[in-house]
């Protein structure tokens, strides 16, 4: 079990990333899709330059739960697969590393899409 201060670090780092995201929302009027794309690309970049693992050691869920972690594992998968299986790895690495998340999102969306119905906003 971790010490309690780990959770504090997770809270602060995760919160800060969302804080930056909110600044982007307000300042640039970015839509959801653009925000997500920006942070995924940031994750890919951090992994590519080799910074992500160090940050992840420190921030843990603070950077793995934000979609940055998704981008990072795409890049990490590609890098590892290229090292182990060469050119084929370029094609297989990224998506297979993230297959769990993508498949889960699609599967749950499908199931809940069947079950539930979209409701009008009631705010």
């Amino acid at each position: 079990m971790n010490d309690w201060y780990v959770y504090l670090i997770v809270f602060l780092t995760g919160g800060t990333i969302c804080f930056i995201g909110q600044i982007l929302v307000i300042k640039t009027k970015m839509t959801t899709a653009r925000i997500l794309v920006t942070f995924v690309l940031l994750g890919v970049f951090l992994q590519a330059v080799g910074l992500f693992d160090a940050i992840s050691q420190f921030c843990k869920a603070g950077i793995n739960v934000p979609i940055i972690g998704f981008g990072a594992s795409l890049a990490k998968g590609a890098i590892n697969a290229v090292k182990s299986s060469g050119i084929l790895g370029i094609f297989t690495g990224g998506l297979s590393a993230c297959a769990g998340g993508i498949a889960a999102a699609i599967f749950f969306a499908f199931i809940f899409g069947i079950i539930f119905k979209a409701k009008t906003k009631k705010m």
């Binding site: 969302c18 930056i20 909110q22 959801t32 998340g101």
Partner: peptide, 16 residues
Amino acid sequence: GAGTIVPITGFSNSIT
């Protein structure tokens, strides 16, 4: 706002 978009919850919501 971004508090739910940036975590993987936003990705899930954007598909569902």
